[in-house]
Design a protein around this nucleic acid. Sequence first.
DNA 1: CTCTCTGCAAAACATTTGCAGTCGG
DNA 2: CCGACTGCAAATGTTTTGCAGAGAG
Lengths: 129, 129
Amino acid sequence: MADTERRATKQRRAVEQVLQDTDDFISAQALHARLREAGDAVGLATVYRTLNALVEDARVDTLRLDDGEARYRLCATAQHHHHLVCRDCGRTVEIAGPAVESWADAVAAEHGFTEVSHTLEVFGTCDRH
Amino acid sequence: MADTERRATKQRRAVEQVLQDTDDFISAQALHARLREAGDAVGLATVYRTLNALVEDARVDTLRLDDGEARYRLCATAQHHHHLVCRDCGRTVEIAGPAVESWADAVAAEHGFTEVSHTLEVFGTCDRH
DNA sequence: CTCTCTGCAAAACATTTGCAGTCGG
DNA sequence: CCGACTGCAAATGTTTTGCAGAGAG
């Protein structure tokens, strides 16, 4: 059920288009709203379904903030990376942290943990809004 | 509203007791269920209210997983730290990562970000369940 | 044609809130 | 006593799902 063939429908393309045009993380609700303004009448349920499919295919990243709303963003690179997100304007920069990766692995191994993975997000206020 | 005096009620003590007895992260729902089994009839709303109060007072940590359920855990130390969580048994180890802290600050500054904060959680499979 | 995908509305959840009554200090 | 705290139920907000119909291949 991972890469089962997926149809190229109008609404799927519309969702991907919005993601493409958005450099920052966007919530499903916001994405849906944007589609409506753009004239594309895509159902909210479809937006969720499409988003979940994309996440499953590892084509988008998910970010869970404390407000209970999940944010989605198209992955620029398929490889593992982190994000530097502006608290105010939402601008996002993809960052790599080689040192962090190995540190996490090391610490985990030290405690007898294997199959290590991790999540790391950096937040801040950017100067040029 | 931060450290406004807080009353020591039976239900508050019950919630803290469960947290005390739980070394791992636990969801509000699970905590509530555990209270019920224990005979303490504490309302779910009260559990949430108490948990939020504790978070506000920085006495517990919050962790948002991808299942949309927030997990809570009593802080061992008041200072900033991260967690190494076992995917299978939920065992949690508090870890410190001085290098990560400074790295995050540096990278953020490099991109013109200030007021930097971050979240970092490490997951893995621990050998001794 | 067939079988997946979509829309809509209802359902399912987690969490919050309004309010009257309770109880700690 | 007084006001903060609680319980319950209703309200909220997000995400999921059931089902009949639409459209891609």
